[in-house]
Structures are given as C-alpha cells and as structure tokens.
C-alpha cells in the first residue's frame, strides 16, 4: 500500500539514485518493493542491472493493450523481494496517451490496483525533474514524497517554492506531505555548509536528512550496483539507510531489530501454505 514518490523541481539532484537505493534497502529489510519509473529517460532500470536492450515497460503495455492495460505484466523481478517497473521506450504521441490515461480520476486504484493498491507491496516512484503529469496523477495515492535537493545557492529559493505547493499546483500527496533530502552535501565547502544551516534553521521539520557527496554513488551506478554493494562503508549508503529508516517509521512500518517487516514475503507464503 505505501507509495513513496521521489521528485524534485530540479534535475540531476539524485532522484533516481535515492529511489533505487531506497528500494534496495527496503527490500533487504524484508519488504516487497516495486520501483516504478515515471521518467521517459527510462533509466531507473539500469540501477537494477536490467540490460540496456530490454526496452519493455508499462508504456509498452499501453501501446500494445490500450490505456487501461494492467502494468503488472511489465514488472521485472530484479532481486529477492525487489521488482522494477520500467517506463519503457516511448515517443511523444504515446506519452500523450499515457498522460491522458493516468490523469483520469482514480486511475491507479481502478486499473493498477495490484501495484498501487496492494497492501503487500511498497511502491517507490521515480519522476522526471520538475512538473510532470505523472507526478500530479500519482499525488492522490502517494503517502509520502521525498524531494532531493542540492545544498547549493540555487536551492535556497526552491525551499519556498515547495512550501507554496508550486510544483504541481497542489500538495504532492494528501497524507504525510513532502520531505527534503539534502543530497551531495560536502561540509568542506563553505556555501554548502551555509545552505544546510539555512535549511535547518528555516525548514527544520521539512528536512529528512542529508546524503554526503560520495563518489561511491556514481561508481556504484556505473557498475549497476547499489551504493552499499559497491562500498559497504560508503557514507552516502549509510545516509540513505538513515533516510530509509526515518521514512519507514513515518509510514508506520514495523521495524524490528533493524528488520523492516511489511507483511514479509515469508509470512505471506506461510499464511498461504496453511
């Protein structure tokens, strides 16, 4: 049931990085996770080792079976408890069809319930930078929105933009609201420190955490690994885990001895076999 959307008014701030790594962390904690890519760049899948030539995605389903086609068939299992739903290869007219479809009221509950209204599945959605129809469409089913921003001078004005709901002309979700993740922080750089300080002072209850600038992140992406898998001691990986833990507790997950239990696969299987 829980739907986490990862979005930002800016590009290249680490949305895809955060979405993919959160998905990995949650899945490793025992939750069944689907990472959904709403970015036409279709790059989220690459973070999970899906081969480049595998170009299917939910938009391909729409192309093949019409706007109401179930997306679940396009989901790819990429690890224990871990699934990815790629965007798929598309062109402009096709994207128009898709946008129209998802903007119909209750689209996700009505047509994509196995994914977006499934109590056993945690959904993490990655979006293109700035406004997108998908981001607006997903708002009603979203529980929490995570907004990565860089700790640079340009971000200072964005804090207020977000506060004023300007991204999609309305709240990003109707449940827990949005939380900012300051990414690529580097305390050695004065301006970077000052922006963090500014954010903490003025928007403290909106700041979920920081992720240190760490070359382990792009290195991991290049090797199609999660950051933690690339470098167990990576500071960025640690920070992402802290963010995952906080997100979980806000969503009301059961966190037991460091293990997140969200109707874990095992217990579900156990229930079925009885």
């Amino acid at each position: 049931m829980p739907v986490i959307s990862v979005c930002s008014p800016k590009g290249g701030v680490g949305k895809t990085t955060l979405a993919s790594n959160l998905a990995t962390v949650f899945s490793q904690s025992g939750a069944r996770v689907i990472a959904v890519d709403f970015d036409p760049q279709n790059s989220l899948r690459l973070y999970f080792g899906v081969p480049l030539n595998e170009e299917r995605g939910f938009i391909t389903r729409i192309a093949e079976n019409g706007p109401d086609a179930p997306w679940i068939d396009a989901v790819i299992n990429v690890g224990m408890n871990l699934f990815v739903l790629p965007f798929g290869r598309s062109d402009e007219p096709l994207r128009k069809v898709m946008n129209q479809a998802i903007l119909t009221p209750n689209f996700f509950v009505k047509y994509q319930a196995p994914i977006f209204a499934n109590p056993d599945i945690l959904v993490i959605c990655d979006f293109p930078p700035g406004y997108s129809d998908a981001l607006k469409a997903i708002a009603p089913v979203t529980d929490i929105s995570l907004v990565p921003l860089l700790a640079d001078a340009a971000s200072v004005s964005l804090f207020q933009t977000l506060e004023d709901n300007e991204l999609i002309d309305g709240p990003l979700n109707n449940r827990l609201g949005y939380y900012i993740v300051l990414n690529h922080t580097d305390n050695r750089v004065r301006i970077n420190r000052e922006v963090q300080e500014f954010a903490r002072q003025n928007f403290s209850d909106r700041i979920l955490g920081v992720i240190h600038a760490d070359t382990s992140v792009p290195e991991a992406a290049a090797m199609q690994k999660s950051v933690a898998a690339f470098n167990v001691n990576s500071s960025a990986a640690f920070d992402i885990e802290v963010i995952a833990r906080k997100t979980a507790s806000m969503l009301g997950f059961d966190v037991k001895q460091g293990t997140m239990v969200l109707n874990s696969v095992e217990s579900r299987n156990g229930a079925q076999s009885k």
Binding site: H212, T215, N233, S235, A236
Partner: peptide
Amino acid sequence: VLIYQESGICSRS
C-alpha cells in the same frame, strides 16, 4: 568519522 579519498569516495569509520 568520514574519510574522503582523493577520488571523492567518502567512507564511514
């Protein structure tokens, strides 16, 4: 403590 290497890799210790 965080350890920064020249490449920018940053590890926790």
